[in-house]
Design a protein around this nucleic acid. Sequence first.
DNA 1: CGGGCTTGGTTCAAGTTTGAAACAAACCTA
DNA 2: TAGGTTTGTTTCAAACTTGAACCAAGCCCG
Lengths: 171, 171
Amino acid sequence: MTTRWLTAEEQRAWRAYIAATHLLEDAIDRQLQQEAGMPHLYYSILANLSEVPDRRLRMTDLAEKSKITRSRLTYAVTRLEKDGLVRREGCPSDKRGSTAILTDAGMDVLERTAPGHVETVRAAIFDHLTPEQVGQLEEISAGIARALEGDGGEVTREDLPWRRRSSSPCT
Amino acid sequence: MTTRWLTAEEQRAWRAYIAATHLLEDAIDRQLQQEAGMPHLYYSILANLSEVPDRRLRMTDLAEKSKITRSRLTYAVTRLEKDGLVRREGCPSDKRGSTAILTDAGMDVLERTAPGHVETVRAAIFDHLTPEQVGQLEEISAGIARALEGDGGEVTREDLPWRRRSSSPCT
DNA sequence: CGGGCTTGGTTCAAGTTTGAAACAAACCTA
DNA sequence: TAGGTTTGTTTCAAACTTGAACCAAGCCCG
């Protein structure tokens, strides 16, 4: 089958997108490295933990929520644990399991650095986007995510809504 | 000054954006690693070289075009050179300078793997975007890039249009 | 029960990225 | 034209990422 190349408009959009994501990740990483002493991903992990009941999540669920591989998460949590921002706990009901818990120190870092982070995100994105554009950005991003999560693996019985896979909350 | 937090809509857009970029970079990296034996960034570097006169660019200009740091580029080019896809040449007119040149082998790899790459990009993004959304994506991305390139460094005389900094094309 | 498959998580080596420091060439400017 | 600054690029060590391999612990089914 003959290749369906990108149209001129698609090319422009694709290039602009690549440039924007590179610049943005760089800027945010730099800002957070400065003020929180960690890259964006690590900050996100803390943030994800902070907004979940009891501030605790099984590793797999945290990886899922953060859209990263388990291996990457293991490394990150090990570092964050060393810094005292996260704590690990085994899971009595499933001895394979491991739970990451946001410590008070972790929460403090988050509260201290959140304003600066939001300011950066605002300056880079939302301060110059119209409300319609905010909606468009969400739509487009959601579409991309849908396309990629859909075929990450085949659809199995477990992925259907009434049997969605998910680790037990670790009693 | 009191923090201007994100609105609910902005939060949703921001999260969707983060998820989309993570998933997309992962997917593209995996695809290119499979078929071209290199991560997306390296592929982009080759692509950038391929569309410039003589397929050659000074390191600094290539870094600029690729939106990455010089140091990162040095590493990447070293690897690509080892693979024979890029060749380096000194610059007679400015002995500090170094020029990266796409080799024929590099061009071959590009031509061989471009179709698969485009297909992946299409499947992830453009196949489920309306033409209006393509335009919106470009607009939004360009806005972000503008915001971030603008304040990367202070504006100095050299940055003004009639004295724009740029390496000589290396006579 | 007793293998054999799946799942949750970590580990390991190889590859990549980072930011600061190092260098050398080019560019002032007195 | 000597000395100081800037520019183009690389280097280095430390941090991070990757994917495959590994190790238990649960699960399944005869």
